[in-house]
Structures are given as C-alpha cells and as structure tokens.
Design a protein around this nucleic acid. Structure first.
Lengths: 109, 109
DNA sequence: TTGACATATTGATAAACGTCGATACAATGA
DNA sequence: TCATTGTATCGACGTTTATCAATATGTCAA
C-alpha cells in the first residue's frame, strides 16, 4: 500500500484546489493573481492555504520574486502520481497507457 | 473545471479505501472477505461504507450472488479518470501517456 | 525609518468524513 | 414459519478540513 498515492489524492480532492491547479497550468501566477482568477470565490488566506497543500504534495513549483511568490503547476509530478495509480490499481491497463521507460521505479511494500 | 475528477479524487483520498482497492485488484471478494483481508483494521459497517463510496465513483464492479455481494476493482474507470487528470493538468505529458489506439488516425493532409 | 504592499500564519467556526455499535433488511436453509 | 448468515443502514462521536477575519511576517520604496 502506497502512502504517497493517498497524499496525492488528498491534495487534489478539493474543488477549489483543482480550480487553482487549472489556473496554474502552463503559466506562472502570483498568489494575488490566483485570487483574482478565482473571482471572489475565496479570499487570499484561503488561496495561500491551498497553495501550501499543493506545495506539500509537490504539485506546484514556486519561485520567489521580490515580495511576490509565483506558482505554477508541476505537470511532471502529477503525471508520475497518475502513473503510480494506474500501475497500482490498473495493472491490466498500465502497459497500454504508460510507456514503460517513463515510469519511475516505485518503492513500496 | 471538471467535477468528475474531484469526485474521483475524493473517492480514492483515504488510506483504508486504497487498501480495499488493493485487495480488490484483479479478484472478486465478498464484503466479509474484504473485512478479513483488512485483518481487524476496521469492521464490517465501515467496509460497507467504503465500498459504497467506491461504487458511487464507479471504481468497483458489483455482482450479487445469493446473500453475498462480490466486488472487484474497475480498472478501466480508474484508468479513464487518471487519463482525464493528465489531460487536464499535464497537457505537456498527455501525448506520451494517452494510449496510441485511442488516437484517431488521420489519413491525409 | 516609515509606509505600503504581498503573502503567510493564527484562531475560530462550521461542514464533511471515518469509525463504531446497534439494528434493519434480505436470502437461505431447517 | 423460524433461525442463521451476509450486508446495508442508522445515529452518535471524534477528527479532519475549508473557510474566514484578524494579524504577523517579509520586502521594497521613499
């Protein structure tokens, strides 16, 4: 049983967080940029809270610049985690879906 | 923003549930079989609760047989959900991960 | 240093969730 | 019919979590 895949699932198991992830896909945004993108759905401390959770799960990359912090989605980590899930829970599909050489070696059990 | 990927994440965002999924991978087990496999970690009503959550997310297939209900992991649904995640949140990697036979062949141009 | 701005942290609150014991429901066999 | 077995549901409880307002921390400019 792999604890990391539980941590990954918990990290993305929130609608607001996935919305933030969507906005951070392929672009770097400051915290306030994200707050603005969410259009008043939640306010700044909540966004910071979610970004911290995503950072803990290594699902975002962070770059400090002056007094701002820029975040972007870590696509590689997300891909790795999904690959892990498929390998663990869909072995019959793993070979078809994920190229073997792209799968990091998993340590578990 | 895709609601289904949030539902999927919530469904697998629990350690006990992932443990159950592990045991249901490639085999059919009755509820009590699962309870036994968990070796006293949780008891029967809790297992039923988790199986219902997994069933709601279509992550398990169910077969009634007499007074027993047999469950097995739905590997296809899990694969689909992971593919959805990668396409949504890792577009730069999606091309490598999506199965070749799922891509429609273009004959000309 | 002072003030303004960007972000993180804290404390409180309400909702969601996992778990349990007890019990209800359903199917089988005597 | 009744008793037994397998599973689901209910009600309660404690924990986790998302959210907010208020405040602290950190950075830069004047």
């Amino acid at each position: 049983m792999n604890v990391d895949s539980v941590a990954f699932a918990k990290a993305i198991a929130d609608e607001t967080r996935q919305e933030i992830m969507q906005h951070l896909c392929c672009v770097w945004l400051s915290v306030n940029d994200v707050v603005d993108k969410l259009g008043g759905k939640v306010n700044q401390p909540t966004v910071s809270h979610h970004l911290k959770k995503l950072e803990d799960a290594q699902l975002v990359l962070v770059r400090q610049e002056g007094r701002q912090r820029f975040y972007t989605l870590n696509q590689e980590q997300l891909t790795v985690c999904c690959g892990l899930l498929v390998r663990s829970f869909a072995p019959d599909y793993a070979a078809k879906v994920v190229p073997v050489d792209a799968i990091p070696v998993v340590e578990h059990e």
